[in-house]
Design a protein around this nucleic acid. Structure first.
Lengths: 103, 103
DNA sequence: GCTATAGTGAACCGAGTGGTTCAGTATTCA
DNA sequence: TGAATACTGAACCACTCGGTTCACTATAGC
């Protein structure tokens, strides 16, 4: 891999895993602890923590340790970066669609 | 990994690699052959072909073999699926932002 | 027909990823 | 204080991924 490791870069990497996307969807419904997130996947706490850490680094999730519990929530403006990237490309794709046939 | 392997799933996987994203950006500027795509990356044709195949399977790129040349282009409506997914989550993230503090 | 070009398929390789277990720390609660 | 809970860190493991090389096929052009 090439690894420029911008935030957008990390976000795309984070989104590649279906479990992590499911976590994001879950967090869309409200904040949750590591245990609460791990349980429905039948995953170890350690395993889930790793996913959460990745999502944090990608700035898609923020967490806060309250006592012995870590509360995880969707980051504000989480998808701004990738949305922008995507929209730019999407414009191109639409142009391709309009001019189809004249290559 | 879990692997439901829907198209959206494959699209996210495809987008995780920075080289593949660069290929998409390049194709935004117009169609290109495998050789033309491989060259700027200093990558073997075989290597590039693999990326293109992945992008095809994710329905982000379409290709067409003309003689001995394979022409690659951005797929129409390429980003529809992931855009929809993202927008849904983005709405949640905005809600989080608005209601911040009252957890 | 011969040669150069464009791509393909198979096999292989090193690094990275997703997951585990196990032992430990810090909080909570009776 | 002592036991249970919630998480963490280190070490480990199997598998996937991005890439290569090499031998091959098919087309293009003289």
């Amino acid at each position: 891999m090439v690894q420029y490791s911008t935030t957008v870069d990390r976000a795309f990497t984070a989104l590649a895993d279906p479990n992590r996307r499911a976590v994001l969807e879950r967090l869309g419904a409200g904040s949750a602890t590591i245990s609460e997130l791990a349980e429905p996947f039948g995953m170890s706490l350690t395993g889930m923590r790793k996913h959460i850490r990745l999502l944090e680094e990608a700035e898609l999730v923020t967490t806060e340790k309250v006592g012995r519990v870590r509360r995880c929530m969707l980051a504000p403006y989480a998808f701004e970066g990738i949305s922008t990237w995507l929209q730019r490309l999407d414009r191109f794709a639409q142009v391709v669609e309009r001019t189809k046939g004249d290559r």
